[in-house]
Write a protein that binds this DNA or RNA. Sequence first.
DNA 1: CCAAAAGTGTTAGCTATACACCCATGC
DNA 2: GCATGGGTGTATAGCTAACACTTTTGG
Lengths: 242, 242
Amino acid sequence: MSEFHYNPHISVDCVVFGFDDEKINILLIKRKQEGENVYALPGDLVQKGEDLDVAANRVLYELTSMENLYLEQFKTFGSPDRTSDPVDVEWIKSVREHPEARVITVAYNSLVKTQDFDYRPSSFAEEVLWHPIEKPQKLGFDHNEIANTGWAMLREKIKREPIIAFSLLPEKFTLRQLQTLYEALVGQKLDKRNFRKRMLRNRFLVAMNEKETGVSHKPAQYYRFDDAIYKEDFAKDQWFLF
Amino acid sequence: MSEFHYNPHISVDCVVFGFDDEKINILLIKRKQEGENVYALPGDLVQKGEDLDVAANRVLYELTSMENLYLEQFKTFGSPDRTSDPVDVEWIKSVREHPEARVITVAYNSLVKTQDFDYRPSSFAEEVLWHPIEKPQKLGFDHNEIANTGWAMLREKIKREPIIAFSLLPEKFTLRQLQTLYEALVGQKLDKRNFRKRMLRNRFLVAMNEKETGVSHKPAQYYRFDDAIYKEDFAKDQWFLF
DNA sequence: CCAAAAGTGTTAGCTATACACCCATGC
DNA sequence: GCATGGGTGTATAGCTAACACTTTTGG
């Protein structure tokens, strides 16, 4: 594949986190490379004249077939020696037209439900996988640094805008689901009664006329997230939980 | 000046805020350009193989002679049409070797005391000035967007790490000075008694054996910021004010 | 009837906010 | 002695955190 229409100096990398109703995972690819198993973040060069946000979506699509997720830029990594590991250097030589070029990379974050997206490796990705974030995994290039920074910044952001969390739940959800999600995000257990008290103060959380069925215990109330009420109450800045 | 050693696609822009003991200002340059007075952020292309953080410091130095300030990257701007205003296009043609190249720019933030730095225009800067942030000022390129984003992100950061604020005060300072600074940062007046109560809970704020002199009112107690106590008390995450 | 998760209230300590007067100094 | 900004306390309302038992369902 010719690369004449790529900007040899600028790449994007995508740090996609996925909630599987239990824990948070990170989306990785396995590179096609002789005799080595190298995991990395999905990322590649930007095209000439291509908007960065557009590039992030394209690159993720080309490698994983995932599309229509909300990617947000969080940091640009540009130290000249970010690609110095011999294994990485060899790989760059095999795929890049200007392997010697110094590349800065603009990193993007996303947070999705794993089950909302099908994925399938293509281009230089041999495999695509969701890797649990609690389990350490060595990545190529400086991708460990990028992924760790991305996770830290995403958590900071959720503290400021917890609304993000609701996008990870189904239309109707129970308070237990919401609490499990919050616990995965903050990385610690929370008190059930206090969690409910605080959460239910938020008017945008509305009880539905529906309960769980088919569970072998007291069925839980379903709630939904009301976007209109949310906007009304929090036009400006206010926040409760955290 | 030849540009063969510059990377034609990557630039840095510096959004430097300065506190003058009263209000917050932003550092601007006036470009040397025929018949137009164009204000802009200090910024320029990155050199080949140059670390981004290094480039930000170099560029700021070359344009303003300011050095040794702490610049922190906050966002990268890369829409293909960020430089479309005819006045900007003309200017680019006059100084760049590859005027047609699409440039993404990595933006850096800083927050300093205005009186700590001498400045003097050089390179393509005709003038360097501190501009009060309350007064709107049209800037070249997409620099208004960059400056506004930088200000918003700096304020967010100070909420999370208010320690930054102390770097803007002299070694010894009064609580009134501290309060004036906080009011400039949050953009609103605060209650004097409550401010003092909360602030003085912080052990790292230590009273000195010294008071103001030569003022025609009750002289104020001087305080200093104790870095060791700060680190001890807040090794992790805790914060009070805000 | 047993297991499993849902659902529910109270208390104590702390934090935020609102608010008004006396004090020390220079001129 | 007067103008100026420094410095101080209290009361109230709201929030956080800790903690244990009853309810509803399926099997």
